[in-house]
């Protein structure tokens, strides 16, 4: 019996190996290569001298590192709660049994299938001053202002957050939708007999039942938001004057524009470390609850 399952396990190896080789080569190996790089003075083309923790020391004293890390964190703070709330709201809306159900589901999900370049150029098209859609609508309802949605440092953040929500909310909505459909009907039927109102049902059945999937979404969202880069680069370029520049853009600039791959690797490790800690906290929480 034991021997048989051992053979069974062995049979899995040929199926796993191709992926594992690629994974080893393109994910695991670069992780260690990056660690090595962060300990060296390393240009785009060659390894220079060993500098130990010098890069890390520089990083802790680098105001741009802290500024861009804060920008990224601000993005996480702004998008995560709004994303969870919006995804939940849309999922509830798309779960109502009406003729429009399919329409809701597909239209909420549609933006998610577009690439970042497409959504960024759509955003620019909508938000640009003078001739953009948003400002034209404002003018047509009699508002004479000319808000600079991408060039004002406060409005730029609002624009990026709204565009990101619109773009990625669909995926989270689907997760919530799956969670909603997993709630047994018997719970609602029983509560109805007990005389619960719609609000009571939502408050005491729907919400508690959605907590586990909500936590998954929260973690995924935080991790994804910390990696924000492309849409900011394309919409504001990190501007005005670096006000929206995220950490990954700074890493890119340090590595490929300033020819300092060693330092870029160091900052990548800082980001990696932050994500690692967040994941551990989240996983530990989950395990505590499961006990």
């Amino acid at each position: 019996m034991n021997k048989k399952s051992w053979i069974q396990d062995l049979k899995a190896i040929p199926y796993l190996l191709p992926f594992f080789v690629a994974y080893l080569l393109f994910t695991i190996l670069p992780i260690f290569k990056g660690l090595e790089m962060s300990l060296f003075d390393w240009t785009l083309v060659r390894k220079m001298e060993f500098v130990g923790l010098e890069n890390y020391k520089e990083m802790f004293g680098d105001p741009h590192f802290w500024r861009t890390l804060w920008n990224t964190t601000l993005f996480v703070i702004l998008t995560t709660p709004t994303m969870v709330a919006l995804a939940l709201g849309l999922a509830l809306l798309a779960n109502i049994k009406t003729k429009l159900q399919t329409f809701f589901r597909s239209s909420f999900f549609l933006p998610s299938i577009l690439s970042v370049a497409v959504i960024s150029f759509l955003a620019i098209f909508m938000l640009q001053p003078y001739s953009g859609f948003v400002n034209t609508v404002l003018h047509s309802v009699g508002i004479e202002a000319e808000p600079f949605w991408m060039a004002d440092k406060v409005l730029a953040w609002i624009s990026i957050v709204v565009v990101t929500l619109w773009w990625t909310v669909g995926f989270n909505m689907v997760l919530f939708l799956a969670g909603l459909q997993d709630i047994p009907d018997s719970l609602y039927e029983a509560s109805e007999i007990d005389g619960a109102s719609r609000w009571d049902q939502f408050r005491h059945i729907t919400l508690p039942q959605l907590v586990p999937i909500g936590k998954v979404i929260l973690l995924l969202q935080i991790l994804a938001s910390y990696k924000v880069f492309a849409q900011i680069l394309l919409i504001t370029g990190g501007g005005p004057g670096g006000a929206t520049r995220p950490l990954i853009q700074y890493i890119y600039e340090a590595g490929f524009r300033q020819n300092n791959l060693g330092y870029a690797a160091t900052m990548s490790y800082a980001l990696f470390f932050i994500l690692l800690i967040l994941s551990i906290i989240q996983l530990r929480n989950q395990r505590l609850e499961e006990r």
Binding site: K153, P240, G241, G242, R257
Partner: peptide
């Protein structure tokens, strides 16, 4: 290229 990035980013703040 590094100098140009710095100049552009800081001059942008003058232009805004």
């Amino acid at each position: 290229r590094g100098v140009q990035d710095i100049m552009v980013r800081n001059l942008d703040l003058v232009w805004t």
